[in-house]
Amino acid sequence: MAGALTTSKASNNSTYAGLGNLLMLPSWLIIGFFLVLPVGMMLIYSFLTKEFRGGIIWEFSLAAYDQFFFDRGLFGDDPAKIEWTYIKIFWRSIWQAAVATFFCLIIGFPTAWFIATRTGNSRSIWLFLITIPYWVNLLIRTISMKFLIRDTGPMNEFLISTGIISDPIHIINTNFAVQLGLFYSYLPFMVLPIYASVERYNFSLSEAAADLYASRLTILQKIILPTVKPGIIAGCILVFVPSLGAFLAPDLLGGAKNFMIGSLIEEQFKGNAGNWPFGAAVSMILLSMVLIVLTYYARQQSKEGRR
């Protein structure tokens, strides 16, 4: 009874009531000034005219977006055709990210399930083991992967010495290497949200189904997967979104042929050959894609919440 009284008092009259905005002020200043404002300025930048030596001229222009979607020939006076180069790079990035997400799900779901069905200490140790690699520098993890899968790397050496293969498997600088790198980079992101969902899963649902002679597969399909779906969606988004704009994996593992959005953007800002308005435009397109995915996710979540 007393507990109920104090909680109601606390919720009516919080300790620092009225100080909310003051306490939020530093966050507003730092994130507002150094993230919101810059993104806004980049939006403006994407509508400016580029100068030849990598700078910009303050003149409104749609040239950056035009360059992305249309090919007007070398001198810009041919009739406009659809420009496929950049659309293809986006398409490849989406595909690579999707494949990586798929493999993360295939490995991540059973792992998350297994960990969530452990008890006590062993569960937190498993969980800890899965999280550690996430905190290891992404650059170092990508370099490790590059070292491992080289034509003359330890993996091929091992497979050749055991006689499983006679010629090295060529992985580096292929699409598969990039997918592997993305998979490796973001695998823990898949496991953790699914784990959180499975942990809340009510096993009496499975029990009821088993009592009614449902097979394991039926239980998985009809009961478990629909119930833990929010976790699966969250995991997929946490892998897909950073994969889409990834720079290190495609750059270090994919080589020049397997360009993704991240490298396309980076290229526009290096040296004199770059095109800042175009780079800004590509960034804005990437950002809008990510925001679409996140909005979809937020709407799904609120739907789940209302149920």
């Binding site: 993230l35 950073p242 991240g262 980076e266 990437l286 990510v290």
Partner: peptide, 23 residues
């Protein structure tokens, strides 16, 4: 304000990087 705190997680790193450089 809550959305603001989480904003750095939502904007792709490369976009943050470019935006800051431009800014």
């Amino acid at each position: 304000g809550f959305a603001l705190i989480n904003l750095p997680l939502m904007v792709p790193e490369i976009v943050t990087a470019v935006a800051l450089l431009v800014f």
